[in-house]
Design a protein around this nucleic acid. Structure first.
Length: 414
RNA sequence: GUGGGCAUAGCUUAGUUGGUUAAAGCACCUGAUUGUGGUUCAGGAGAUCGCGGAUUCGAGUUCCGUUGCCCACCCCA
């Protein structure tokens, strides 16, 4: 017996039956992104490993243990921001427009242990707004609103938006100093991971889920005292703008993001119904990433939503029907098949989606195929039809049938 | 990387304290007199019970190993 091949671990086949749902979600997303004047960009599925390391940070978990690499220098993209920024720099988009609003929909890859809502190949739809001098609280609020409105358009309602600010790079420095001081004495009580985080990325202690760590974190007074006046004012405006857009949010001082490049506004949208992998989407501002990757000093903010998680959280009440042919052609006997086969071809040339069974079985069984195909009309060809140069057309909804000449048939079904 | 659970037809599952031809629903195919679907009825095909080994007269059912999947930790979309 020969080996059975299965999809690689953590990947899925999306079968024809599920495609209509995916297309629905993608179409809705494109609609909304268009309303916000985002333009699609498509970047390669892999890049130089160094690009991801430099953008996401050497110490981030994604880089440390979740990257799938191809050979030594290339890696499959674990997210799309780095690639979009790379493309932005490579094609000097800052010279071509003030603000580039770019969106993408496509697969991302991470070498994680799969579980509900976590795959090795998964899909994200996201956007990046990049441009010199575009750091504006209104843009931040708009990006957050865009994420929220996309989710709403999919019928999601039970998600929760959390926002926070990390401040400017200097503020972030202060913040990390503040946290180091804060956790210095209770360091022993923190989990092993957090002890490492203390050195590498002290922010992440704040969102550790370990009970002891939480207790220690909760005992600390964490506030926005690390922010400069400007950053304070900026953040206040973001919140104000969100309120004016009618976006409900919750402020979370513990919200930091796992990727190094974030500064100022960060946000995360989660849905408790998803269980352990509850983030539907997230994003934030990253004003220093473009120059860090060798580009000009331009400001940027972005977001990404997880398609599979959206699908998991979506109400399952609606059914999405797939493509069906308009006409199904049936040869009533062997001798009529050649003519039937040519009729299908003619219909297709005329732009009418049609199909046929390639084996002449009983009329009953061909009718069953026609019914299953979902075709609105069945065109029957037999001895009588050939003699009179007509086609019998049955409307599968009403059950009515009539005999028509070819040109009339095309006119009817078109 | 660390735990735990599960593994029977295409799908969802049943399978009594180990005992003859492994069961059902859905899906699939065929038929119900002459060239006609969806409902109904009748019939049919489809499973070496994930794989390997052990115990036993006998294993889908017990034990060990292995692989896969799922869930949780971790991390994140």
């Amino acid at each position: 017996m020969s080996k059975k091949f299965l999809v690689p671990r953590g990947t899925n086949d999306i079968l024809p039956l599920e495609i209509p749902l995916w297309q629905h979600v993608e179409a809705k997303a494109r609609d909304i992104l268009k309303n916000y004047n985002y333009k699609e960009i498509r970047t390669p599925f892999f890049e130089e490993t160094e690009l991801f390391v430099r953008s996401m940070g050497q110490t981030s978990d994604v880089v440390q243990k979740q990257m799938l690499n191809l050979g030594s220098d290339l890696s499959l993209r674990p997210e799309n921001t780095a690639s979009v920024v790379r493309a932005y720099i490579q094609h000097s988009l800052d010279r071509k427009e003030n603000l580039s609003k770019l969106f993408y929909i496509g697969p991302m890859f991470r070498g994680e242990r799969p579980q509900k809502g976590r795959l090795r190949q998964f899909h994200q739809m996201g956007g990046e707004a990049i441009g010199p001098g575009t750091c504006s609280p209104y843009l931040d609020a708009e990006v957050i609103a865009l994420s929220v409105n996309m989710l709403k358009s999919f019928g999601l309602n039970n998600f929760q938006l959390k926002i926070n600010t990390l401040g400017s790079p200097e503020d972030k420095e202060n913040f990390s100093g503040m946290l180091r001081k804060m956790f210095k004495s209770p360091l022993e009580g923190l989990c092993e991971d957090c002890q490492k985080r203390y050195e590498r990325n002290v922010f992440r202690i704040l969102d550790c889920k370990n009970k002891d760590c939480r207790a220690i974190v909760n005992a600390q007074k964490i506030d926005h005292s690390y922010l400069s006046d400007e950053s304070h004012a900026y953040y206040a405006k973001v919140k104000e703008a969100l309120e004016s857009l009618g976006i409900a949010y919750e402020e979370s001082l513990n919200l930091v993001r796992g990727l190094d490049y974030y500064t100022h506004t960060v946000f995360e949208i989660s849905d408790a119904s998803l269980g352990s992998q509850d983030a539907l989407g997230a994003g934030g501002r990253y004003n220093d990433l473009v120059p860090q990757l060798g580009g000009p000093q331009v400001d940027a903010i972005g977001f990404a939503l997880g398609v599979e998680r959206i699908l998991l959280a979506m109400p399952q009440d609606k059914e999405f029907v797939g493509q069906t042919p308009t006409v199904f052609v049936i040869a009533l006997d062997e001798t009529a098949f050649a003519e039937a086969f040519s009729l299908v071809n003619t219909l297709r040339q005329e732009g009418v989606p049609s199909d046929i069974n390639y084996k002449v079985s009983s009329v009953k069984s061909q009718m069953r195929s026609a019914n299953k195909s979902g075709a609105r009309y069945v065109a029957l060809l037999g001895e009588d039809e050939l003699k009179n140069n007509v086609v019998t057309v049955k409307d599968m909804e009403t059950g009515n049938q009539e005999q028509l000449e070819l040109t009339k048939l095309i006119g009817k079904v078109k």
